[in-house]
Simulated scan of single mutants.
Amino acid sequence: MKYPLVTAALLACATPLGAHPHIFVDTGFEVILDAEGRLTHLRITWAYDEFYSLLVTEDRGLDPDYDSVLTEAEVASLNGFDMRWVEGFNGDTVLLNGGEEIALSSPQEVATTFSEGRIITSHLRAVEGDAPDANGLVIKPYDPTYYTAYEVTQKVTVQGDDACRARVKMPEMNADLRELQQDLSALDANTDPNDVGLPEIGEALANEVVITCDAS
Protein backbone atom coordinates (compact mmCIF):
# COMPACT_ATOMS: atom_id res chain seq x y z
CA MET A 1 0.00 0.00 0.00
CA LYS A 2 1.13 3.54 -0.69
CA TYR A 3 1.02 5.86 2.31
CA PRO A 4 1.67 9.57 2.93
CA LEU A 5 5.42 10.13 3.35
CA VAL A 6 5.19 11.69 6.81
CA THR A 7 3.29 8.72 8.18
CA ALA A 8 5.63 6.24 6.48
CA ALA A 9 8.64 7.98 8.03
CA LEU A 10 7.01 7.94 11.46
CA LEU A 11 6.23 4.27 11.04
CA ALA A 12 9.82 3.44 10.12
CA CYS A 13 11.10 5.18 13.24
CA ALA A 14 8.56 3.65 15.60
CA THR A 15 8.32 0.06 14.38
CA PRO A 16 10.31 -2.41 16.51
CA LEU A 17 12.50 -5.27 15.37
CA GLY A 18 10.64 -8.01 13.58
CA ALA A 19 9.18 -5.37 11.31
CA HIS A 20 7.90 -7.28 8.29
CA PRO A 21 5.07 -6.82 7.78
CA HIS A 22 4.86 -3.27 9.11
CA ILE A 23 1.08 -2.80 8.85
CA PHE A 24 -1.76 -5.27 9.45
CA VAL A 25 -5.13 -4.80 7.77
CA ASP A 26 -8.28 -6.83 8.42
CA THR A 27 -10.06 -6.89 5.10
CA GLY A 28 -13.64 -7.42 3.93
CA PHE A 29 -15.51 -7.34 0.63
CA GLU A 30 -18.96 -6.69 -0.68
CA VAL A 31 -19.23 -8.38 -4.08
CA ILE A 32 -21.87 -6.59 -6.14
CA LEU A 33 -23.48 -8.43 -9.06
CA ASP A 34 -26.02 -7.41 -11.68
CA ALA A 35 -29.24 -9.30 -12.47
CA GLU A 36 -27.34 -11.63 -14.83
CA GLY A 37 -24.84 -12.67 -12.18
CA ARG A 38 -21.99 -10.54 -13.52
CA LEU A 39 -19.65 -8.75 -11.17
CA THR A 40 -19.85 -4.98 -11.56
CA HIS A 41 -18.33 -3.57 -8.35
CA LEU A 42 -16.31 -4.44 -5.28
CA ARG A 43 -16.72 -2.57 -2.02
CA ILE A 44 -13.55 -3.04 0.01
CA THR A 45 -13.13 -2.56 3.76
CA TRP A 46 -9.78 -2.04 5.48
CA ALA A 47 -9.55 -2.10 9.29
CA TYR A 48 -6.07 -0.99 10.29
CA ASP A 49 -4.27 -2.39 13.33
CA GLU A 50 -4.24 -0.29 16.49
CA PHE A 51 -0.55 0.58 16.30
CA TYR A 52 -0.70 1.93 12.76
CA SER A 53 -3.95 3.74 13.57
CA LEU A 54 -2.19 5.38 16.52
CA LEU A 55 0.67 6.51 14.30
CA VAL A 56 -1.72 8.05 11.80
CA THR A 57 -3.73 9.91 14.43
CA GLU A 58 -0.55 11.11 16.17
CA ASP A 59 0.88 12.29 12.87
CA ARG A 60 -2.26 14.39 12.35
CA GLY A 61 -2.51 15.67 15.90
CA LEU A 62 -5.74 13.77 16.60
CA ASP A 63 -6.87 12.16 19.86
CA PRO A 64 -4.46 14.19 22.06
CA ASP A 65 -5.88 12.64 25.24
CA TYR A 66 -5.36 9.09 23.92
CA ASP A 67 -8.85 7.94 24.84
CA SER A 68 -9.40 6.27 21.43
CA VAL A 69 -12.36 8.56 20.77
CA LEU A 70 -12.38 11.02 17.89
CA THR A 71 -14.83 13.80 17.18
CA GLU A 72 -16.86 13.74 13.98
CA ALA A 73 -14.64 16.48 12.59
CA GLU A 74 -11.49 14.50 13.40
CA VAL A 75 -12.86 11.38 11.72
CA ALA A 76 -13.85 13.47 8.70
CA SER A 77 -10.29 14.79 8.46
CA LEU A 78 -9.05 11.20 8.07
CA ASN A 79 -11.34 10.40 5.15
CA GLY A 80 -9.28 9.55 2.09
CA PHE A 81 -5.92 9.48 3.85
CA ASP A 82 -5.22 6.04 2.34
CA MET A 83 -6.62 6.81 -1.11
CA ARG A 84 -3.72 8.93 -2.39
CA TRP A 85 -2.53 6.30 -4.81
CA VAL A 86 0.34 6.75 -7.23
CA GLU A 87 -0.35 6.11 -10.90
CA GLY A 88 -0.47 2.41 -11.69
CA PHE A 89 -1.10 1.28 -8.11
CA ASN A 90 -3.68 -1.51 -8.08
CA GLY A 91 -4.98 -0.77 -4.58
CA ASP A 92 -3.45 -4.02 -3.29
CA THR A 93 -6.51 -5.80 -4.70
CA VAL A 94 -6.35 -8.20 -7.63
CA LEU A 95 -9.47 -9.57 -9.35
CA LEU A 96 -8.81 -12.66 -11.45
CA ASN A 97 -10.89 -14.43 -14.08
CA GLY A 98 -9.28 -17.71 -15.10
CA GLY A 99 -5.91 -16.35 -14.06
CA GLU A 100 -6.31 -13.14 -16.07
CA GLU A 101 -6.43 -9.89 -14.11
CA ILE A 102 -9.51 -7.71 -14.51
CA ALA A 103 -8.96 -3.97 -14.31
CA LEU A 104 -10.72 -2.05 -11.54
CA SER A 105 -11.46 1.64 -11.34
CA SER A 106 -9.92 4.14 -8.95
CA PRO A 107 -11.65 4.32 -5.55
CA GLN A 108 -15.12 5.83 -5.25
CA GLU A 109 -17.53 6.43 -2.34
CA VAL A 110 -14.71 6.60 0.20
CA ALA A 111 -15.81 6.41 3.85
CA THR A 112 -13.95 6.35 7.18
CA THR A 113 -14.86 5.42 10.75
CA PHE A 114 -12.86 5.10 13.96
CA SER A 115 -13.69 2.39 16.49
CA GLU A 116 -11.83 0.99 19.51
CA GLY A 117 -8.61 2.70 18.48
CA ARG A 118 -8.71 1.48 14.87
CA ILE A 119 -9.19 3.38 11.62
CA ILE A 120 -11.64 1.60 9.32
CA THR A 121 -12.06 2.73 5.73
CA SER A 122 -14.11 1.54 2.79
CA HIS A 123 -14.17 2.32 -0.89
CA LEU A 124 -15.97 1.16 -4.01
CA ARG A 125 -14.24 0.03 -7.20
CA ALA A 126 -15.99 -0.64 -10.49
CA VAL A 127 -15.03 -3.28 -13.04
CA GLU A 128 -13.59 -1.55 -16.08
CA GLY A 129 -14.78 -2.96 -19.39
CA ASP A 130 -17.26 -5.81 -19.73
CA ALA A 131 -18.55 -7.19 -16.44
CA PRO A 132 -17.42 -10.83 -16.08
CA ASP A 133 -19.60 -13.73 -14.99
CA ALA A 134 -19.08 -14.01 -11.23
CA ASN A 135 -18.76 -17.79 -11.11
CA GLY A 136 -15.13 -18.76 -10.57
CA LEU A 137 -13.80 -15.25 -9.99
CA VAL A 138 -11.02 -14.86 -7.43
CA ILE A 139 -10.22 -11.76 -5.36
CA LYS A 140 -6.75 -11.53 -3.82
CA PRO A 141 -5.87 -8.69 -1.42
CA TYR A 142 -2.12 -8.41 -1.00
CA ASP A 143 0.93 -6.19 -1.05
CA PRO A 144 3.60 -7.95 -3.15
CA THR A 145 6.37 -6.70 -0.84
CA TYR A 146 4.54 -7.88 2.31
CA TYR A 147 5.12 -4.43 3.82
CA THR A 148 1.39 -4.55 4.52
CA ALA A 149 -0.29 -7.81 5.52
CA TYR A 150 -3.93 -8.19 4.51
CA GLU A 151 -6.11 -10.86 6.10
CA VAL A 152 -9.73 -11.45 5.13
CA THR A 153 -11.34 -11.41 8.57
CA GLN A 154 -14.10 -8.84 7.95
CA LYS A 155 -17.44 -9.71 6.34
CA VAL A 156 -17.50 -11.00 2.77
CA THR A 157 -20.95 -10.74 1.20
CA VAL A 158 -22.44 -11.17 -2.25
CA GLN A 159 -25.20 -8.80 -3.33
CA GLY A 160 -27.49 -9.11 -6.36
CA ASP A 161 -27.69 -12.85 -6.96
CA ASP A 162 -28.77 -15.39 -4.33
CA ALA A 163 -27.23 -18.22 -6.37
CA CYS A 164 -23.72 -16.92 -5.73
CA ARG A 165 -21.62 -17.13 -2.60
CA ALA A 166 -18.07 -16.36 -1.49
CA ARG A 167 -15.59 -18.45 0.47
CA VAL A 168 -12.19 -17.50 1.82
CA LYS A 169 -9.28 -19.75 0.91
CA MET A 170 -6.14 -19.56 3.02
CA PRO A 171 -2.65 -19.81 1.48
CA GLU A 172 -0.87 -23.14 1.43
CA MET A 173 2.08 -22.80 3.78
CA ASN A 174 5.02 -25.02 2.86
CA ALA A 175 8.37 -25.18 4.64
CA ASP A 176 10.10 -22.80 2.21
CA LEU A 177 7.40 -20.17 2.58
CA ARG A 178 7.46 -20.41 6.37
CA GLU A 179 11.25 -19.99 6.32
CA LEU A 180 10.97 -16.90 4.10
CA GLN A 181 8.30 -15.48 6.40
CA GLN A 182 10.60 -15.96 9.39
CA ASP A 183 13.52 -14.35 7.55
CA LEU A 184 11.38 -11.31 6.75
CA SER A 185 10.14 -10.98 10.32
CA ALA A 186 13.76 -10.83 11.52
CA LEU A 187 14.59 -7.74 9.42
CA ASP A 188 14.72 -4.36 11.05
CA ALA A 189 12.38 -1.62 9.88
CA ASN A 190 14.97 0.12 7.71
CA THR A 191 16.07 -2.91 5.68
CA ASP A 192 14.67 -3.52 2.22
CA PRO A 193 14.14 -7.29 1.74
CA ASN A 194 15.45 -7.01 -1.83
CA ASP A 195 18.74 -5.64 -0.52
CA VAL A 196 19.38 -8.87 1.38
CA GLY A 197 18.23 -11.16 -1.41
CA LEU A 198 14.76 -11.99 -0.09
CA PRO A 199 11.98 -12.30 -2.70
CA GLU A 200 8.56 -10.67 -2.62
CA ILE A 201 6.19 -13.14 -0.97
CA GLY A 202 3.01 -11.09 -0.54
CA GLU A 203 1.14 -12.92 -3.28
CA ALA A 204 2.10 -16.35 -1.97
CA LEU A 205 0.73 -15.41 1.47
CA ALA A 206 -2.48 -13.87 0.15
CA ASN A 207 -5.94 -14.99 1.18
CA GLU A 208 -8.23 -15.71 -1.76
CA VAL A 209 -11.93 -14.93 -1.97
CA VAL A 210 -13.47 -17.42 -4.41
CA ILE A 211 -16.90 -16.75 -5.91
CA THR A 212 -19.09 -19.71 -6.88
CA CYS A 213 -22.60 -19.67 -8.33
CA ASP A 214 -25.15 -22.46 -8.64
CA ALA A 215 -26.19 -23.38 -12.16
CA SER A 216 -29.63 -22.06 -13.11
Rank of each mutant, 00 (worst) to 15 (best):
A166K: 07
T40A: 06
D63I: 10
E74F: 01
F114V: 02
T191I: 15
V110I: 15
A134K: 02
S122I: 06
A73E: 10
Y142V: 09
S185T: 13
E208Y: 09
A215S: 12
M170P: 04
P199K: 14
V196C: 04
M1Y: 08
Q159V: 14
E101V: 11
G129P: 02
E200D: 15
Y48L: 11
E208P: 05
L177G: 11
R43N: 07
G18K: 06
L78V: 04
E87F: 13
D59Y: 06
D214I: 06
H20G: 00
E109H: 14
D26N: 05
D176V: 11
V75S: 03
I119C: 05
E109Q: 14
G197A: 09
I139R: 01
A111H: 15
D63W: 08
T153C: 01
H22C: 00
S53E: 08
P171D: 09
E208L: 11
G37A: 07
L198C: 14
L11Q: 05
G80T: 00
F89Y: 12
V6G: 11
M173D: 08
C13P: 01
W46F: 07
Y48V: 04
K2L: 13
S68H: 08
D49G: 10
N194G: 15
W46E: 06
Q181E: 09
A149V: 03
P4G: 13
D34Y: 10
G197L: 10
M83L: 10
K140S: 10
N194S: 15
V86M: 15
E208G: 08
L96F: 12
L137Y: 06
L39G: 01
H22E: 01
G202I: 03
Y142Q: 12
P107D: 03
A35T: 13
L184N: 05
A206N: 02
P132F: 03
E36A: 12
V94L: 13
I23H: 00
I211W: 01
V138R: 11
D176P: 08
E87R: 13
R125G: 02
E179W: 03
L187V: 10
Q159L: 11
C213N: 10
P16F: 07
S106K: 13
N135H: 14
L104H: 00
N90V: 12
A204H: 07
L137T: 04
E36G: 11
E179A: 10
G160D: 04
S68N: 09
N97W: 09
D67W: 02
V210G: 05
L187H: 13
R38L: 05
D133H: 11
S216D: 13
P144H: 11
R84A: 15
L70Y: 02
A206W: 00
F89L: 08
W46L: 03
D183P: 00
R60N: 07
F51L: 11
D82G: 05
L137C: 06
F114K: 00
L55G: 05
S105M: 07
P4S: 13
D130M: 04
Y3K: 14
G28Q: 05
G129I: 06
L54H: 14
Y142M: 12
Y66K: 13
I211E: 01
W46Q: 03
V196K: 08
L124Q: 08
A215L: 12
V127D: 01
Y146F: 14
R43D: 07
F81I: 13
G129L: 04
F24K: 07
L95N: 00
